[in-house]
């Protein structure tokens, strides 16, 4: 079946099997491999992206459900001139990543967090990111990265 949507500002359209997940559509059909898969139970959050303004886990949606949607992935977060989003800067400034595998999902969840709560407390950040696993950092520097980004606006 044919699926069409706008990904990072670009209109895309592909023929896919009906069972194709949104994350597969991005990784396999569009070659956007920044969105990662870390589990098969919607538990890890590595595949988190922004769909129509909401952070969602793209492993738990069919591509077909996203017909006509606006999708932003990690590849589309920086400005077109390459200027990084403050959350991206924050992760680098505060060493909020190590292996980098959970990072795209963690960043996308953080983007939504700051949209909803521009000045979150330590506990509010930890609560908002509990859908995203990180096995490397112990989360401490991720919390600091989000706080750093919050302090930029």
């Amino acid at each position: 079946m044919k699926v069409s949507m706008t990904v990072n500002g670009v209109a895309v359209s592909h023929d896919v099997e009906p069972r194709t997940l949104l994350v597969q559509f991005l990784r396999e059909n569009l070659g956007l491999t920044g969105t990662h898969v870390g589990c098969d139970t919607s538990s890890c959050g590595a595949c988190t992206l922004i769909l129509n303004g909401e952070a969602v886990k793209s492993c738990s949606l069919l591509a077909a459900q996203c017909e006509g949607a606006e999708v932003t992935t990690i590849e589309g977060l920086a400005a077109s001139d390459g200027t990084l989003h403050p959350i991206q800067e924050g992760f680098r400034e505060k060493h909020g990543l190590q292996c980098g595998y959970c990072t795209p999902g963690m960043i996308m969840s953080s983007v939504q967090l700051l949209q909803r709560n521009p000045n979150p407390s330590d506990q509010e950040i930890r609560h908002a990111l509990e859908g995203n696993f990180c096995r490397c950092t112990g989360y401490d520097n991720i919390v600091k990265a989000v706080q750093w980004a919050a302090s930029q606006s």
């Binding site: 990784r27 070659g31 956007l32 491999t33 920044g34 969105t35 990662h36 898969v37 992935t73 990690i74 590849e75 977060l77 920086a78 990084l84 991206q88 992760f91 680098r92 400034e93 060493h95 990543l97 292996c99 980098g100 595998y101 990072t103 795209p104 960043i107």
Partner: peptide
């Protein structure tokens, strides 16, 4: 020193094995 490898990871351009086609 801030990590020089971070740029590819925060922009979704890391190259993990499953990314290779």
């Amino acid at each position: 020193i801030k990590r020089v490898e971070d740029h590819r990871f925060i922009t979704g351009t890391g190259e993990y094995t499953d990314d290779i086609v």
